[in-house]
Design a protein around this nucleic acid. Structure first.
Lengths: 350, 350
DNA sequence: CTGAAAAAATGATTATCGTCACTTTTTCAG
DNA sequence: CTGAAAAAGTGACGATAATCATTTTTTCAG
């Protein structure tokens, strides 16, 4: 079956030219001459890939991308921006919103076709990698029916890539499901009224995001952001609900996850309440090193994220880390931190 | 069927005298001449009431009470201390540990029999009240099989009274089940290394205690203490486990409870991290007034508990409350606080 | 009702950590 | 490799809230 391509471009000449090229190349092509129609077509037809101009009247390219990100189905479709040279400046913004590639106009036929091909291939590769990596998903696997069922459901779902710093969901968004983090890493933060952030969690592969919002039938309570390019899979709420009702083991499993989460949160509370910044920073280091497995290996994290993690000012983070370095507890150059003495960090008195 | 009484007393003369009196009164009597034997007999025979001397060699009365409190079954048995005048000083300690009454030696026959009678009656009354108050347990009631089942299990269980300030379970204790709070109120706290306390929860009727420890199959993560005389019912772990496996609705219900708990903890985290003491104290006031339902009504809470709730020093609590009073937000005399302007408290900026 | 003990309040002092302003280092596109 | 922008680090300063010491008020058994 031929792949479906959606092209959104207000300039008739360019659009028709692209349609012609793509049809000749054997794709099934849908075309829209403005953003609104484009979004409609995308949601209805769920094409395999979308090409979209940035500068358009009414709804521009960024707007289209934003709208598509709202629909879990459409958000997973590879998205390529078409830009004139002048627009290149704001392009990073688009890439951070989750666009996968961009083409600078004018481009020739081969450039276009290659870009599409490689995107489609990458998507397929991701899907394959994902299926394979699921075999490593020890968390929920056993010989039990319910869990096998959950695994199956997960396997059937499409994956979606999130760029570094791209937001996965916002605090207050309607919880439409549970995200399973396949690979990469993700932080969840809550915003205080004055705009300061507090990190409520930091996650590696095989973690679930938005569990409590989904399971409580409420809005997301925090904002999830990719710390690096990450692959995630959305398990829609209704499917999850069905599973929970049919298979007690699945429910039991989630109960355990939630219970442990509470335990962690309580621990964090105690720390925030009565531990000095020094001690809190040490705790954060220990947590991070656990997250990043191998000891002695450097990891990168911004002072801002560290500050949000330990609930303190970025300047205080800088100072404390400098102290730690002087004391031989860690090493650092730039944003890369290496833990040298995890035992002393873990046992820090005050 | 005649009621069973266990008497633990090292003095042979006194013990035999009491046995005689009780047998004449129609009770089935077990006697032990030291604490160890007494505990054994109590756990094995589960008498309806226990009489126990305080001063005994090896295991004294406090020790017996302590041991009995470890067994969920035995802990529910009414417990009466027998004391000489000289021992009266430390008696409060015993009462706080959960003893229900005390008799000062020497006592005459009628004093003894009356004490026993009234204790047994009170116990029965509690049990009856408890069954009735279960009807108000809206939390888990619906027409669904699973929940009806849960309710039945709860109804069959024995209640147990906890005195004001009595500990229900300690942080680190093996989680042997879930407590349902029938009436009264309970706080849960975590201890920091330096001994300072942080309150992780404050509960009113129809709440569950120790959910997460029980459901995660771990030790209790906090210490639960009765804030006033409270009635609780223990749902043992294995029965709960069975229910969870048989009835998805029950599991679903607990999942919701846990999820909401996480939400609250995250909110608390954010507050601790970035809110001023003033604001935190205001939040605590709001939470307490919600807990104690009727606005304008005074409630009692120690500055120490408030400090643990908001993660600050007791002196700071005093100061902040005085400020609030000056500003007409609350009224207070002694430990009794009345909330005057809940809206302004809730909206407090900083 | 009374007095001792516990709890609460207040005052004085100080350490911690956040803020602001500025410098230095790192990062990254071209 | 280069230079501009972003991130990290540093210094000075001050506000907040903890601590310690003491006084006042409340509680509660007798």
């Amino acid at each position: 079956m031929s792949k479906k391509v959606l092209i959104i471009e207000d300039n008739n000449e360019i659009r028709e030219n692209i349609v012609e090229i793509l049809e000749l190349a054997g794709y099934e092509v849908f075309a829209a001459n403005n953003g609104k129609v484009g979004v409609d077509l995308a949601v209805k037809n769920l094409p395999d890939i979308i090409l979209c101009d940035i500068m358009m009247p009414e709804l521009d390219g960024y707007g289209v991308l934003y709208m598509l990100n709202k629909s879990p189905e459409a958000a997973a479709i590879p998205f390529i921006f078409l830009t004139a040279k002048a627009e290149r400046v704001d392009l990073r913004k688009g890439m951070e919103m989750g666009a996968d590639d961009y083409l600078t106009k004018p481009f020739d036929d081969m450039e276009l076709l290659n870009a599409i091909e490689s995107r489609l291939k990458k998507k397929e590769a991701q899907q394959a990698f994902y299926s394979k990596s699921l075999d490593n998903l020890n968390t929920l696997i056993s010989k039990n029916d319910g869990l096998v069922e959950l695994k199956k459901i997960i396997q059937e779902r499409k994956v979606r890539q999130f760029k570094k710093n791209q937001v996965i969901y916002y605090e207050g968004d309607k919880g439409n499901g549970l995200y399973l983090l396949i690979n990469g890493s993700v932080k969840t933060i809550k915003l205080a009224e004055d705009g300061r952030e507090l990190m409520t969690g930091i996650f590696g592969p095989d973690s679930y995001l938005g569990i409590n919002a989904t399971l409580a039938n409420e809005d997301y309570t925090d904002t999830a952001t990719a710390l690096e390019d990450s692959l995630l899979c959305l398990i829609p709420k209704d499917q999850l609900e069905q599973l929970l009702n049919m298979y007690p083991v699945v429910a039991r499993e989630f109960i355990k996850l939630l219970s442990n989460d509470i335990r962690e949160k309580e621990e964090q509370l105690l720390q925030l309440a009565y531990h000095s910044v020094r001690k809190r920073m040490a705790e954060a280091m220990v947590r991070l090193s656990r997250q990043h497995a191998t000891e002695g290996e450097a990891f990168k994290i911004s002072r801002e994220d560290l500050a949000a993690m330990a609930g303190m000012a970025t300047e205080t983070v800088s100072r404390t880390l400098s102290d730690f370095k002087d004391e031989g507890l860690i090493d650092k150059k730039g944003s890369a931190i290496t833990i040298l003495d995890i035992n002393r960090l873990a046992k820090m008195k005050n």
